[in-house]
């Protein structure tokens, strides 16, 4: 039911959104592929995913990439929204550094996380990525992207702070994914109930104590 964020596809579109005319004869895709790409996916506790793609290019690829994509950010955004309509992309930003020949694309999917029937969550990982390291909240992968001239890609997933039980499933397969659940904080009503019950019990004890205590009698004169 839910869309899945496949960063490879989005990356390919960022790189080549205007070259769909060249389906089948697309050496142009390789010509504009970045030499390295770093992707960060920050998953919010609200189900949103903020994707940041940082790319570095060689001279020729930089020129081609700018001509095709980099100098047309409004068009790039419109095409991205259209091609990835299922992901509800928003908050699109593109920054470039002509001196370093680097570019950074940021976008947000308001509903990018897959909510499974059992209430747990899943974020897919392309099968050419291998797990490098992980902590409870951050998972690091790297691999050579066959869709971008085998350039080196790294990807980092940042899970929300209340993520629990995260684990990599189906490693190396097309169903490779990080699954986790979210721990929900208890609302104030639970505090009220517990506190109320404690006070009620204490009140009863005190009341019973007061009834059990014999009243003082005056000393005989």
């Amino acid at each position: 039911m839910n869309p899945r964020i496949h960063f490879r596809r989005i990356l390919a579109a960022v790189a080549a959104v205007f070259t769909y005319a060249l389906v089948g004869i697309s050496p142009a895709l390789a010509q504009i592929a970045p030499k390295s790409t770093d992707i960060v996916q920050e998953i919010g506790r609200d189900g949103s995913v903020v994707i940041t793609i940082s790319m570095a290019f060689d001279a020729a690829a930089w020129k081609s990439w700018k001509a095709l994509v980099g100098d047309e950010p409004a068009r790039l955004r419109a095409m991205m929204r259209h091609q990835f309509a299922a992901y509800s992309l928003e908050g699109f930003q593109l920054t470039k550094d002509d001196l370093e020949r680097t570019a950074k694309v940021t976008m947000r999917s308001a509903a990018g996380l897959e909510l499974r029937k059992d209430g747990t969550f899943r974020t897919p990982v392309e099968n050419y990525f291998r797990l490098v390291n992980n902590t409870a909240e951050a998972w690091f992968f790297s691999g050579n992207n066959p869709h971008a001239a085998n350039s080196l890609n790294t990807v980092k997933f940042v899970l929300p702070q209340n993520a629990r039980g995260a684990q990599l499933v189906n490693a190396g397969s097309v169903d490779q994914a990080v699954n986790f659940r979210l721990e929900m904080p208890a609302g104030p009503s639970r505090l009220y109930i517990v506190g109320g019950a404690v006070l009620l019990a204490a009140g009863l004890v005190l009341l019973a104590g007061s009834l059990a205590l014999k009243p003082k009698t005056a000393a005989p004169a």
């Binding site: 109930i193 019950a197 009620l200 009140g203 009863l204 005190l206």
Partner: peptide
């Protein structure tokens, strides 16, 4: 005891 009962009851109800 009465204060505890009243307060506890109120909190329980609120909860």
């Amino acid at each position: 005891g009465l204060v505890g009962l009243v307060a506890g009851g109120a909190m329980l109800a609120a909860g």
